[in-house]
């Protein structure tokens, strides 16, 4: 699965610079609003679903080489956060729907959590 399909299917808004999302692979999904959990649980080339929009998420996403972060419930990161994301090459996407719904739709597309 690639990021383009996810953006299209879930009708996500792209908050950061656009690029060729069809070339960005997505191998797994992860959902949590606790940074410490994400640090230990999310896998490279995964998408992370969270309703957190503060700037700490960028560092974590960059560190873990995530394909994208989907910010739920229309939570809006501030300009500095978006600038930082662009600088580090982190893609931020946004949805008005809550975590449960967004994850459900990803699961429907066939995306699963990483199996340990």
């Amino acid at each position: 699965m690639n990021l383009e399909e996810i953006i299209h299917n879930l009708n996500l808004k792209v908050l950061t610079d656009t690029r060729d999302f069809s070339a960005v692979p997505v191998k797994s999904g992860y959902c949590s609003d606790l940074l410490s959990c994400v640090m230990t649980g999310a896998a490279p080339e995964g998408v992370w679903v969270t309703l957190m929009a503060h700037s700490n998420i960028i560092a974590v996403a960059a560190l873990l080489d995530l394909s994208a972060v989907i910010i739920t419930e229309d939570a809006q990161p501030d300009e500095d956060t978006i600038a930082k994301a662009n600088e580090k090459g982190v893609t931020l996407l946004s949805s008005p729907k809550p975590n449960f719904q967004v994850v459900g739709e990803l699961w429907d597309m066939g995306l699963r959590a990483k199996q340990d």
């Binding site: 649980g41 419930e73 809006q76 809550p98 975590n99 449960f100």
Partner: peptide, 29 residues
């Protein structure tokens, strides 16, 4: 033992609706 991602996914697929009120304009830019 499942993670939040799979737990949400399984229950969503079984038809359990999202029971969260959509946020109002408070969080919009």
């Amino acid at each position: 033992t499942l993670g939040l991602f799979d737990t949400c996914g399984i229950l969503f697929q079984e038809g359990l609706p999202s029971f969260e009120t959509q946020t109002e304009d408070d969080c919009a830019p």
